[in-house]
């Protein structure tokens, strides 16, 4: 089959909503785009464990401690499902992680913000996981089979994350004045970074067009961001929290909420490594990798010894 024919068959499958599977022919750029996007997503899960993980030892009661442990553990699982999906494309987990450690590969900029109070944990569940779910639900229909299947599994598990966050904030908002103030403070700090999670505006996004054509992405960054704002406003009202945007207003004509322009300079600075916690996050992951080196080596050596014993 000629390359042109293969390409035609590939595009035909995409048109007919047939999933592309690991052994199928695919354009090299499609493969590279997927590896980049999926691994970035996987890195976000893994780095995302850190700000929340900080609070496991300080969770205010045993139930919350167990919930937080289970949630952060899920994130490790989600990272793993996603790395698995990249490995079906011929990528290598360790190599991908090294790319993150050197700054070559990115992860979601939200995790470069610190989790300062217990209210941040609820807020991360509600807003950050809420924004992530908005993105992930759309990705359940992505054109690459293993990615779509991983997303389906992740979405099922993530809905607990958002609900526990909201429930936790509900407690604070119905609690003592200090608790409510703590929740509002977290909202003030996390609102804008949450909107930034959807990435640069469509006009600025370099990868968007082709990804939409290949149905890797099903909606643009701005579309998803708008859906998130629309969904979140009434949730904030029920909590009694104020969204820190004076221009947030329902627009009858558009049928959507209008909101202020994002501070793009902050966005790009954080992406480029100048967020409040970029260095700490990478340092923590690098430390885990290096301190785990001897453990992985030992297990390999042991497996080899046992295999030799067996065959001897």
């Amino acid at each position: 089959m000629t390359q042109a024919e293969q390409e035609r068959r590939f595009l035909d499958k995409i048109d007919r909503e047939i999933k592309i599977e690991p052994n199928d022919w695919m354009p090299d750029e499609y493969r590279q785009t997927l590896i980049r996007q999926i691994s970035q997503h996987a890195h976000s899960e893994i780095v995302g464990m850190l700000p929340e993980g900080n609070w496991i030892t300080r969770a205010p009661n045993l139930r919350r401690k167990a919930v937080l442990l289970a949630k952060v553990q899920d994130e490790a699982g989600h990272g793993l499902y996603l790395y698995s999906a990249t490995e079906t494309l011929g990528a290598d987990r360790e190599q991908l992680m090294d790319d993150m450690h050197t700054g070559k590969a990115k992860y979601s900029s939200i995790f470069n913000y610190p989790a300062l109070t217990w209210a941040d944990i609820g807020t991360i569940g509600w807003l950050v996981d809420g924004a992530a779910i908005m993105n992930q639900v759309a990705l359940c229909r992505t054109s690459y089979g293993p990615y779509a299947r991983a997303m389906v599994k992740i979405c099922k598990e993530e809905s607990f994350h958002q609900r526990q966050g909201y429930e936790s904030l509900m407690k604070l908002c119905n609690g003592a004045p200090q608790q409510k103030a703590m929740a509002q403070d977290a909202m003030n700090r996390f609102w804008w970074p949450s909107l930034m999670m959807f990435g640069p505006s469509d006009a600025e996004s370099t990868h968007s067009d082709q990804s939409i054509k290949w149905k890797i992405k099903r909606f643009t960054n701005d579309e998803l961001r708008q859906s998130f704002v629309d969904a979140t406003v009434s949730q904030a009202q029920i909590l009694g929290l104020t969204i820190p945007d004076p221009n947030l207003k329902w627009n009858e004509d558009r049928g959507h909420y209008d909101f202020s322009e994002i501070n793009w300079e902050e966005f790009w600075q954080v992406v480029k490594g100048n967020g409040p916690c970029n260095k700490e996050r990478i340092a923590a992951r690098l430390k885990a990798k290096e301190e785990g080196l001897w453990v992985r080596e030992a297990a390999n050596a042991f497996a080899k010894k046992r295999a030799m014993k067996k065959s001897a």
Binding site: G77, Y81, S84, E87, R149, A150, E157, R296, A299, F302
Partner: peptide, 22 residues
């Protein structure tokens, strides 16, 4: 799905923790 493990014993245990948490 898949995972990484040095041997079959740990592969089964990792699979239990990664894929049967619920």
């Amino acid at each position: 799905g898949s995972l990484r493990a040095p041997d079959a014993t740990l592969a089964l245990e990792n699979a239990r923790d990664v894929y049967t948490r619920r």
